[in-house]
Design a protein around this nucleic acid. Structure first.
Length: 360
DNA sequence: TCTACTATCACATTTGAACTGA
DNA sequence: ATCAGTTCAAATGTGATAGTAG
């Protein structure tokens, strides 16, 4: 873990610093081409996202959110030991935002220890009712983290927020591992994988229809921890009831995370373009006071940052670094992403959906 | 025929209720 | 009655793979 503590002299009031905690592991995977399993019922990420924050205002409340953004506009296939572009991407599934269950919490809380997004799950089930992040298989994504000063999840839009992303966290969503190198790397690092592997005998003839005990207590508890109500019921803080309901559902104390995902209305996201990117940069310094005009009724379904502020916020954008997105398939590419609004035809970051809210 | 997806398997790890003792 | 520590059963998460769907 090459985590560089913020030097005292680098600290600036009003600047938030975010560090990817397990960056080395992420880089190991990224160098091969990270794959994340997605299943109908939701699968955790491995490596999972863990970040640390500094330079927050200790007594101000913050909300930390995470979402997944398409890394490009292609669909891929695994062929002959490598990824190939298989056409244009599918229309984006409902985009959800996962809110860290400690949210809202004071800056001192967030800075106390790294934040884990271990329990966040990925699914390919567009009808998912559990608040998992919905992705398309064979598409590439990267996680994005949002920090906003707010006293409740329902006032998020009224405050400035900053967005962070880490190039090495880009991955391909798959329903089954394609690259055996990834499988091996995961097994080496993920204790859960050992059980089945080392079990040895795997007899499919022994299969029987679900004679395992049904999910009960723990599953229920976990679900309770979710900010989990039918999509239609929470259309954002328009009613005081929904606000209160949301508060009630926030667990006061959680060992880890629960999903409080926010389904977004905008189903469309344009590809990132290629941009030069510095791998050495694990941390991103971002000005805290983004002059963001909070309320714009028309734009709520979209990422609320005006494009001219995006540069300040996204100090990094993401590298494809996929063996596959070859120049042949991707005329723009020189191996790096572009910042969208650097080109006239490029799509504004505001087209990436963030909390347009139907909060689970 | 090919590719992608799903259900199911066994076991290590995690979790938390129940218990014990101070 | 309360708290801290321990134990242990149940829940969870995992990759592989056969079967299914398109």
């Amino acid at each position: 873990m090459s985590r560089s503590p913020p030097a005292a002299d680098s600290y600036q009031q009003g600047c938030i610093r975010m560090t990817l905690e397990n960056a080395d592991l992420w880089k190991s995977f990224h160098s091969i081409g990270t794959e994340m399993i997605i299943t109908k019922h939701g699968r955790r990420m491995f490596p999972h996202c863990s970040i640390s924050l500094s330079a927050l205002q200790p007594f101000a409340n913050y909300i930390i959110m995470m979402d997944m953004v398409p890394a490009d506009s292609f669909k891929y296939k695994w062929k002959k030991e490598q990824w190939e572009v298989a056409g244009k991407s599918e229309p984006q599934p409902p985009c959800r935002t996962y809110m860290h269950p400690d949210s809202p919490a004071p800056g001192s809380h967030w800075m106390k220890q790294p934040l884990s997004f271990l329990r966040m799950k990925l699914t390919n089930n567009t009808l998912d009712q559990h608040g998992h992040i919905i992705l398309h298989s064979m598409h590439r994504y990267y996680p994005r983290f949002h920090v906003t000063q707010a006293d409740s999840p329902y006032t998020v839009r009224w405050g400035p927020f900053q967005t962070f992303s880490f190039p090495e966290t880009t991955f391909t969503a798959v329903t089954a591992y394609q690259n055996p190198k990834i499988t091996k790397l995961k097994i080496d690092h993920n204790p859960f994988a050992k059980g089945f592997r080392e079990g040895g005998t795997h007899s499919h003839s022994k299969r029987c229809r679900s004679n395992r005990s049904p999910p009960a207590k723990r599953a229920t508890l976990d679900r309770e921890a979710l900010c989990n109500s039918p999509p239609g019921l929470q259309r954002m803080p328009s009613t005081s009831e929904s606000v209160e309901a949301g508060k009630d559902q926030q667990p006061s104390k959680e060992r880890d995370l629960s999903a409080c995902s926010v389904e977004q209305e905008s189903l469309h996201a344009e590809p990132l373009e290629l941009q030069e990117y510095d791998y050495s940069c694990e941390e991103q310094m971002v000005p805290a006071s983004v002059p963001y005009q909070p309320y714009r009724s028309q734009e709520y379904a979209r990422f609320p940052l005006p494009s001219n502020e995006v540069d300040a916020v996204h100090t990094l954008v993401h590298p494809p670094h996929h063996p596959l997105a070859t120049a042949e398939h991707n005329p723009q590419q020189h191996g790096y992403y572009h910042h969208p609004h650097h080109h006239s035809h490029a799509v504004d970051w505001s087209q990436y959906p963030l909390f347009s809210y139907s909060c689970w």
